Simulated scan of single mutants.
Amino acid sequence: MAARPDERQARVGADRSDAGDDGQGRRSGARSGCATGDGPAASRHPQLDRADRVRQLRVASGPAIVAGIGIPLPLFDRNRGNIAAAQAELQGAQAREAAARLDAEAGSRAALALVEAADRKAEAAQRTMATAEEGYRLARIAYQAGKSPLIELLAARHNLGVARGVILDAAIARLDARANLARLQGLTITGEAVQ
């Protein structure tokens, strides 16, 4: 069987430089079905190295072909774990940031709704107070004219006190709602920026 020209050149080169031969006549890197490049996709597949050569052995009388395959095993490559941990930590921080942003937006919307509800409650309390004052005034006039008993005057006065309590409760709820909204917006209750 005749040798191919590249095998003859390898054999002649091996015979000439036996002392200077590093044991790798021809070497080529091949990846098992993946594209070359640096990046996460490239590091997922093992890189295969193929080396072959033709040498004239001194012990035997004929040429010998030596071939080898090298597969790097990342047994002590801990940097990939650190990179994955850093990426997971980054994703966790981004998720916490998004959750905090959504919480702040939801809190701001809820605070706006509470302010509007407190304003409506205060307006209703003002109307209730006006009605109670008018009822007390009419009950007092009727009592002074002798047309209504004392119990009706006392009931009208009690209703006036209850209406004043409702106004105070509405004012406190309005103040609390506005203070909460200002806190969520980073402002003071007067609307100035917090420093």
Rank of each mutant, 00 (worst) to 15 (best):
R4K: 13
D6M: 07
D6C: 05
R8P: 04
A10C: 08
A14C: 08
S17A: 13
S17R: 10
D18E: 12
D18N: 10
D18R: 12
D21H: 04
D21N: 01
D21F: 02
D22P: 02
S28T: 15
S28N: 11
R31E: 03
D38I: 07
G39M: 02
G39L: 01
G39N: 00
P40L: 12
R44L: 10
H45Q: 05
P46R: 10
L48M: 12
A51Y: 04
V54D: 11
Q56I: 09
V59L: 10
A60R: 04
V66H: 06
A67L: 05
I71T: 01
L75S: 04
R78C: 00
R78D: 09
R78G: 12
N82P: 02
I83S: 06
A86E: 06
A88C: 02
G92A: 13
Q94F: 06
A99K: 01
A100W: 08
R101P: 00
A104K: 10
R109H: 05
A110T: 07
A111T: 02
L112S: 11
L114E: 15
A117R: 14
A118M: 01
A118T: 06
A124S: 15
Q126F: 08
R127T: 13
R127E: 14
M129W: 08
E134P: 07
G135S: 14
G135R: 15
Y136W: 05
R140I: 03
Y143A: 06
K147H: 08
K147V: 11
R157K: 13
R157I: 01
L160T: 00
L160M: 05
L160P: 00
G161V: 03
G165C: 09
V166S: 15
I167W: 01
L168D: 02
L168W: 02
L168H: 03
D169H: 05
A170V: 05
A170L: 03
A171H: 02
A173N: 09
R174N: 09
R178A: 12
R178D: 12
A179V: 07
L181Q: 11
A182Y: 06
L187D: 01
T188G: 11
T190Q: 07
